[in-house]
Computed example of a mutant assay.
Amino acid sequence: MALHDGLSIGALADRTGLAVSAIRYYEAQGLIKPWRNAGGQRRFERSDLRRLSFVMIAQQFGFTLPQIRAELDRLPGGRTPTKADWAKISAGFRASLDQKIDTLTRMRDNLDGCIGCGCLSLPNCALYNPTDKAREKGQGPRYLMGDRPET
């Protein structure tokens, strides 16, 4: 196959380890944009290997496809991220990952205690959340989300 012929979807699946159906899904989500050859067959650029690798790595970090697409859409011409691009993207990812790590650490450290939900169903809630003060901060497990009880 000549380099300008592009990669078939099967070749792309073989190289990335993704199922053909996953590649079609990523295409439908706008993460990759194949072209058609003279015979009408779907073809992919070799750079789509790196683009799909970026998608798979970002998903492992817990980012959603809309978040990943937003990052890819910021690139000039919708091109594949370069090393310099990745350094910029990863700075934003790092902040989000740090926040997730902080949340997971709080959850781990408080698994056996109050979950900070403001439910007043545990005897300790009178200590951690007197008169349901957590409710004023919003919905959900406020203390695990980073809010602190007033002392």
Rank of each mutant, 00 (worst) to 15 (best):
D14E: 13
S96Y: 02
Q59M: 14
A38E: 13
M145P: 00
E45W: 06
R79Y: 04
D109G: 07
R74T: 15
T105F: 02
D98I: 04
R24C: 09
L49H: 03
G138K: 04
G113Y: 10
L122R: 10
N37E: 10
K83G: 02
F63C: 02
D48F: 05
A28H: 07
T80G: 01
Y25N: 14
Q41K: 09
F54C: 07
R108G: 11
D109W: 03
R106W: 06
W35A: 08
P34F: 11
P130H: 14
L7C: 04
V55P: 11
A2K: 13
Q139E: 11
L97M: 14
R69D: 05
I32L: 11
D48M: 03
G62W: 10
P66L: 05
L72M: 04
M1G: 14
A22Y: 04
S96V: 12
G116V: 06
T64S: 15
S21P: 02
S90Q: 10
R42H: 11
G10F: 05
D14Y: 08
M56Y: 01
L52G: 01
L52P: 00
A11W: 03
M107I: 14
F54P: 01
T151D: 13
G30R: 07
F63A: 07
L52N: 00
P141E: 15
S53T: 13
I57R: 13
T151M: 02
I89M: 15
P66R: 05
G116H: 02
D85S: 02
R15A: 13
G39L: 10
F44V: 05
W35T: 13
C119M: 06
R50S: 05
M56S: 15
M145C: 03
N37C: 03
L122P: 01
N37Y: 00
I89D: 02
R36Y: 09
S53H: 15
A13M: 06
G146S: 09
T80Y: 01
A2Q: 05
L3T: 12
T16M: 07
I89G: 03
C114R: 01
L72K: 00
N110C: 06
T105V: 15
Y143F: 15
G138N: 14
R79G: 09
Q59F: 05
L72I: 05
R148Y: 06
G62M: 12
S21K: 13
G113P: 04
G6H: 00
L3K: 14
A126S: 10
K33V: 14
T64M: 13
A2E: 11
E45N: 07
R15I: 14
G92F: 02
